[in-house]
Amino acid sequence: MPQKNNLFQKLRLWFYVLRQNRFRDKLTKRILKFTSSPEGKKYEAEGAFIASHGLTVFPYPFQFNYDRSKVELGFSEEYPYFDYKGKPLFLPKSWSSDKAKAYANDVLKEQDAQSPHVYNTPLFTLDQEDILLDIGCGDANFSLESIEKVKKVFLFESDPKWVIPLDKTFQKWKNKVQFFNRRVGTDLDSIDLSKIKDLASQQVVFKIDVDGAEREVLKLIDPLLNQLKSIKVAICTYHQNQDASDFEHWFKTRGFDTSFGKGYMVFHPDAQIKKPFFRPGVLFAYRNSVTSLSNQ
C-alpha cells in the first residue's frame, strides 16, 4: 500500500507540473501577442523581456542581480537567518537550507529598488511619529527595515510558522513591537483594529499584503480613517485583475492622494489573469485627516 500511495502522489505531481507548464506556455503566447499589438504597446518593453527570457513575475533585468546560491545563511538555535539590509531576518526552523536560501533571494529581489513590489521608496517615507500596522506581515521585512524610523510597530500574521522567527527577528526592539498571530477581522478568531489602543489622533501607516484579501482589510480600516491624524498606506495591487483600479478609486473617493510604484508585475500564479496582464505592484496613498475633513 505505501508503494501505491507513493506512485499516486508522483502521478499527481506530474500532472500538476504538466498543467502548470501548459498554462504558462499559453499565457506567454497571449502576453506576447498582446504586447505586439497596438492595444499593448504600453507594455512593449516588458513583452520584449519576456520574449527573450521567458515568463517571469518581474519582467525587468534587475532580477539578474540575484542568485540564491550566493545567499549566506546564519543559524541561531537551528533557526536560519539572512542579512536583510544590515539586520538579521529569521526564517522557520523547519525549512531546509535550500528553501531558506531561495526564499531569502526572493525577498531581496522583491524589495530591490527597481522592483514593482518595493515598499521603501521616495513615495513612502516614514518618521519617528508614525505607528506602523503591518497587515499580512509574513517575515516582516518592511517592518524590520523601518523599525528604527517609527514610534511603534504592530505585526499581524495568521500563519503560526512565523511566530518564533518574528520573535527572534525583533528581539532587539521588543519594547516597540506588538505581534498578533491572527488575521484582522471582527470575529472571535481575529483582531479587531478598532480595539487597538492609542491609534486615535496618531500618524498611522498601513502596509497591506494579504494574498488577495485586501478588499476585506479596506472594509475594516474604513471606519478608522477619520479618527487618525494622518494616514499613509502601501497596499499590494497585483493579486487580482481589478485590484489596481479598484483600490485607487477607493482611496481617491476618500480624499487620498495616490501614486503607484514603478513598473509592473505579471502575477502568473493567478489562474484568472487576463489582459492587460501587467499589474502595478503597490499603490501608495496619503491623507492628512485634519486637512481632508476641513475641505469636505
Rank of each mutant, 00 (worst) to 15 (best):
D243M: 07
F154V: 10
F179H: 09
K109M: 13
K219N: 09
A45Y: 08
R183E: 05
E148S: 15
F8Y: 11
N288W: 06
Y43S: 02
E145R: 00
T237P: 04
S76I: 02
L55A: 06
A102G: 13
V177Y: 03
K219M: 03
F58S: 04
D270V: 10
L224V: 07
D189M: 13
Q114V: 01
P223H: 05
P92C: 06
L188W: 07
Q178N: 08
K176R: 14
E77T: 09
R215T: 06
N5V: 02
G263T: 01
Y84C: 07
T121N: 09
L220N: 04
V266C: 13
Q3L: 05
A113Q: 15
Q272K: 15
F154K: 01
N6W: 12
D25T: 13
S245W: 08
P116W: 09
D98T: 14
K41G: 00
K93I: 04
V204M: 06
F154Q: 02
L293N: 09
K152Y: 15
I131E: 03
R24E: 14
P80I: 00
F179Y: 13
D106E: 13
D83T: 12
K219G: 05
D130A: 03
V282N: 14
V210S: 05
A213V: 02
L89Y: 01
S94R: 14
V153G: 04
V290Y: 12
N175K: 12
Q171F: 02
M265T: 15
I273Y: 01
S96E: 10
V266H: 01
V107M: 11
D187F: 04
E72H: 07
F284H: 09
D139V: 15
N5H: 07
A102I: 02
E145V: 02
F75I: 00
K4P: 01
G212I: 08
T258M: 04
L193D: 01
Q114K: 14
V217Q: 09
F49N: 04
T253F: 08
S294C: 05
L7C: 02
F90M: 12
H268G: 02
W14D: 00
Y264S: 08
R215M: 03
D112N: 11
F170L: 03
Q227E: 12
K275I: 05
D187K: 08
K219R: 11
F23T: 02
V163Y: 07
D83Y: 01
D209S: 07
T253Q: 14
V184Q: 01
D112P: 03
Q202W: 00
L220D: 06
A104D: 06
S96L: 10
K10M: 06
Y119G: 08
H239K: 12
L293Q: 14
L32Y: 07
S94G: 14
V107G: 06
P116V: 10
Q63H: 02
D127E: 13
P116I: 10
I147P: 13
G263H: 08
K174A: 10
K10D: 03
T258V: 13
D83N: 14
G54T: 03
N295L: 09
P2Q: 08
S158Y: 06
L132G: 04
K151S: 15
Q128T: 15
T28A: 11
G185W: 05
D83G: 01
R30G: 01
Q63F: 03
F260D: 05
V118H: 14
R12V: 13
F156Y: 09
F8D: 06
K109S: 05
V282Y: 08
L73Y: 11
Y264C: 08
S76G: 01
R19A: 05
P80T: 05
S289E: 14
F278P: 00
R24I: 07
